[in-house]
């Protein structure tokens, strides 16, 4: 039986592993088979992680976090969790290859997944002009006319990055102001290749073999218009990844895992959660990392209390026997 199994390998998962490993709890990180490292693996330069005044590439930062966790004895498994049993003193975690791990505590750091527009042609044209990853797919849109949907930091970063390749990038946003940080907004506003389609939402994607355009609806007067495009990048936020925990853990109205106050304690004793999966608001690499620390410390205290209870029971039994 293990002491700590951590599900997820973004900043929350690796930071929880660093703390748990330094507490000599020999954590196992189940890191995912193809998404190890989490969301930052698909970013370019991270400029707001403290300690990197020149910035750091997202994938490099995640490799460093993993190395730091491994340095103190973290075990890493590149596999996906497909089922969990969280009730009771022994938690079970099942992976895609069919292995079951038993553990006294589980730290959930499964993060979030890209949100979809929810349009009928979105899946069909995914990989044929519809994309969620500018760093992966931007290369294929040299001298093309593309659009980014969204108004947050990710949307501005993608739009700015895509101007390296595309001739024109239109940012489509439902409102007339951006949620993105000031510095990201200014970069986008000052870029000649970026145009803005304000107060517009995408209600249809057209194209048979590949994307040829989108239908936009004006959010103020409801009028519809068409925009010719070669590609559509979707950056409208994320949904917490909680499908494994439905019916086992309490969730919040935002769909995140419910935790007690500023702790990482979920509705089930011995199960802790950290990072984007509990955070509908801040969702930063550094807040996720901090949250991973909280989870590791909570797990450590929980295990210490269990061991203490065990010692008391044994002592009482010995006393009774005497």
């Amino acid at each position: 039986m293990r002491d700590v199994v951590i599900i997820g390998s973004g900043p929350a998962g690796w930071t929880a592993a660093i703390y748990a490993a330094r507490a000599q709890l020999k954590p196992l990180v189940i890191a995912s088979s193809v998404e190890a490292g989490g969301e930052l693996m698909n970013t370019t330069e991270v400029e707001n992680f403290p300690g990197f005044p020149e910035g750091v590439m997202g994938p490099d930062l995640m490799v460093k976090m993993q190395q730091q966790a491994e340095r103190f004895g973290t075990e890493v498994l590149l596999d996906d969790v497909v089922a969990v049993e969280l009730e009771g003193p022994v938690k079970r975690v099942v992976t895609g290859s069919g292995e079951t791990f038993e553990s006294r505590t589980v730290i959930i750091a499964t993060g979030s997944a890209y949100r979809r527009l929810g349009l009928p042609d979105e899946d069909r044209l995914s990989g044929h002009g519809v994309s969620w990853c500018a760093t992966c797919d931007g290369f294929f849109f040299r001298q093309k006319n593309i659009a980014v949907v969204g108004g947050g930091d990710s949307a501005m970063e993608e739009a700015t990055f895509l101007t390296k390749f595309a001739d024109k990038v239109t940012v489509i946003h439902r409102k007339d102001t951006l949620r993105a940080s000031k510095i990201m907004q200014e970069r986008a506003f000052s870029n000649d290749k970026i145009e803005f389609a304000w107060n517009k939402e995408v209600v249809g994607i057209s194209g048979t073999e590949a994307v040829t355009g989108v239908t936009l609806r004006d959010t103020t007067d409801g009028s519809e218009s068409h925009l010719d495009l070669d590609g559509l990048f979707i950056a409208i936020g994320n949904e917490p990844r909680v499908h494994l925990f439905h019916g086992q853990l309490e969730l919040t109205e935002f769909g995140t895992i419910k935790v007690e106050g500023r702790s990482s304690k979920t509705s089930v004793p011995g199960v802790f959660a950290a990072g984007d999966v509990i955070d509908p608001t801040y969702r930063q690499a550094v807040t996720a990392a901090a949250s991973g620390t909280v989870a590791a410390l909570d797990a450590e205290h929980y295990l210490a209390a269990l061991d203490q209870a065990q010692v008391s029971v044994t002592a009482a039994a010995l006393q009774a026997a005497n």
């Binding site: 193809v34 698909n42 290369f139």
Partner: peptide
């Protein structure tokens, strides 16, 4: 695939 594509590196061993 391409060198700069993280998901490509992840799927290669599979």
């Amino acid at each position: 695939w391409a060198e700069w594509c993280g998901p490509c590196r992840a799927v290669a061993p599979i």
